[in-house]
């Protein structure tokens, strides 16, 4: 196309078929507003999701993989060492819960191995006798070789058993005793 053609900007002949196809260069006008906006919101959400995902992976590796040690694994299994900050899991022994000042004392048992716990916080949730719990704290070994768990926080590990309240009421004491022995 010859840009110096004096007839370049002349009106096109009045022919509909041709008019439809003739597209002359138009004046340069700002077109930014016409274009699509950059999806900043989507980029922001994606960035947040990536950061959160990274945090969750880190939490999974540092916290979730070895969430707790069973009581019988303390001092035996790797990572369940005495003196180290760990979580222990066991069932609260029947008749072992007592309060001395701000400390709650109880015994947790798993696989026939028991450990006394001195809990410095208030037990919450469904905490009660014969229920599995996870206690955060550290195992302290006394000079006589006996061990005690200095607990900071207790979480109730509700198991997968569901029972009607009324059914259990028939012989509640027996049911609890059974549950206690079945869980340890």
């Amino acid at each position: 196309m010859d840009v110096n053609d004096p007839h370049l900007n002349d009106p096109a002949p009045n022919d509909t078929a041709l008019n439809d196809t003739v597209l002359r260069p138009r004046e340069v006008v700002p077109t930014a507003a016409r274009g699509r906006k950059k999806p900043w919101f989507a980029y922001g959400v994606l960035a947040l999701a990536l950061v959160a995902g990274g945090v969750f992976v880190a939490k999974f590796l540092t916290n979730a993989l070895d969430y707790y040690c069973n009581v019988d694994e303390v001092g035996v299994k790797d990572g369940c060492d005495v003196g180290r900050s760990i979580r222990i899991q066991g069932v609260v022994e029947k008749g072992s819960v007592a309060e001395t000042g701000s400390v709650t004392n109880f015994v947790v048992t798993f696989n026939g191995v028991s450990m006394p716990v001195n809990l410095s916080s208030d037990p919450t949730g469904l905490f009660q006798e014969c229920i599995p719990v996870v206690v955060t704290g550290r195992v302290v070994e006394n000079t006589d070789g006996s061990r005690v768990f200095e607990g900071e926080e207790v979480l109730v590990k509700h198991d997968e058993n569901y029972d009607k309240e009324n059914e259990a009421r028939v012989d509640k004491a027996n049911a609890e005793a059974d549950a206690c022995s079945a869980r340890t």
Binding site: G53, F60, A64, Y67, P123, L126
Partner: peptide, 25 residues
């Protein structure tokens, strides 16, 4: 009301949170 905490970083909760943000992403 059952465990005594709203959240803890155990395997089920952490993987669920990861699944949630994966699909938000």
């Amino acid at each position: 009301i059952s465990w005594g905490t709203y959240w803890t970083w155990d395997a089920r909760l952490t993987t669920t949170a990861f699944l949630f943000v994966t699909y938000i992403g």
